[in-house]
């Protein structure tokens, strides 16, 4: 059976819509909060993303603030990350401290990884997904 994991943030429209799509299409997924991300898990995800760890992070402070209107501390770090002032190692450390900088939803089976919500990508990714084991030995 395929095991999928989702990291989300309640109140983020993309995250809430992705969760609804999975639920309404009967696809079991382990739902976690983005705030549960550990350093190890961020490293694991970063190694799957084409483009590396930077692609997990909001591309600019404007888009970050649309989803996190009350958070300020993170904005300086997002600028530093996107202006390439930091090493991958440093970014991973920062993300572990401030997980709100990570875009949600992240949907992964640790082979494929989806960041954000796009209907066509959801449909194509979950074609042929196995959701229930009915042929147990």
């Amino acid at each position: 059976m395929d095991q999928w994991v989702l990291y989300g943030k309640s109140g983020n429209p993309s995250s809430d819509i992705a969760k609804a799509w999975l639920k309404n299409n009967g696809i079991p997924v382990e739902e976690n909060s983005v705030f549960q991300l550990t350093k190890e898990e961020i490293e694991r995800l970063a190694s799957i993303v084409p483009g590396g760890v930077r692609k997990l992070v909001y591309p600019d402070t404007f888009s970050f603030s649309l989803i996190n209107p009350q958070k300020k501390t993170e904005k300086v770090h997002i600028e530093a990350i996107q202006e390439r002032e930091l090493s991958d190692e440093e970014i991973i450390e920062l993300l572990a401290t401030y997980p709100a900088m990570v875009m949600t939803p992240i949907v992964t089976d640790y082979e494929t990884i989806l960041i954000g919500y796009d209907l066509d990508t959801m449909v194509s990714t979950f074609r042929f997904v196995k959701v229930k084991d009915v042929t147990i030995a």
Binding site: K9, S10, G11, S33, V34, F35, Q36, P99
Partner: peptide, 8 residues
């Protein structure tokens, strides 16, 4: 806890 403290 994650929901009401960290997210909201």
């Amino acid at each position: 806890y994650n929901y009401y403290v960290r997210e909201q």
